[in-house]
């Protein structure tokens, strides 16, 4: 379930997004941003946030993706960010599958000449990812008072932001 590590757009730009069912780490993303011309590196990590509702505790989230389209949309967003903010390196990884509370679900890394470009591009990427990339999460709750494990409704879009 891993994407090839180096792909290029028609224009020859490297595209590096990944959608994977394996654990994702900061070092894996940071490695892809090494670039002597960048004065700033911003790393954003989105994690599964603990939550309690009506006395029940969230144990985790199930993530799923339309993988092929998600990669295409992520590549698109990388291109847009590069154009808008003039960044030098971008690497986005999103994890799918069953994730426990506290686990990293998404990591976005941006390297740019100056910090403002890097911060703005990272912000742009996470906001657009949530709106435009075909990835979904479903809540998983601990056993409720009825003793039954319930899979409940999906939160409306944007109701849960990482971090």
């Amino acid at each position: 379930m891993r994407s090839p590590s180096t792909r290029r757009t028609a224009g020859g730009e490297p595209i590096s997004s990944e959608v994977t069912d394996r654990p994702i780490t900061l070092s894996q993303v940071a490695r892809r941003l090494e670039d002597s011309g960048s004065g700033a590196v911003v790393l954003f990590v989105g994690r599964v946030r603990p939550e309690v509702q009506a006395g029940r505790r969230l144990t985790g989230l199930d993530y799923e993706a339309d993988r092929r389209m998600a990669l295409a949309r992520l590549s698109d967003l990388e291109r847009q960010a590069r154009r808008r903010f003039g960044t030098r390196r971008i690497h986005v990884v999103h994890r799918i599958g069953r994730l426990r509370v506290g686990t990293a679900s998404v990591i976005i890394g941006v390297a740019a000449a100056h910090r403002s470009m890097a911060f703005e591009a990272a912000r742009f990427l996470i906001e657009e990812l949530k709106r435009e990339v075909p990835i979904w999460k479903t809540d998983r709750w601990a056993r409720g008072p009825t003793g039954r494990r319930r899979r409940t409704r999906r939160r409306p879009r944007g109701a849960r932001s990482p971090g």
């Binding site: 339309d66 679900s105 998404v106 990339v133 990835i135 999906r154």
Partner: peptide, 10 residues
Amino acid sequence: IAIHPPYSGG
């Protein structure tokens, strides 16, 4: 054909 409900990644 793929049916995509509103996205909720991140």
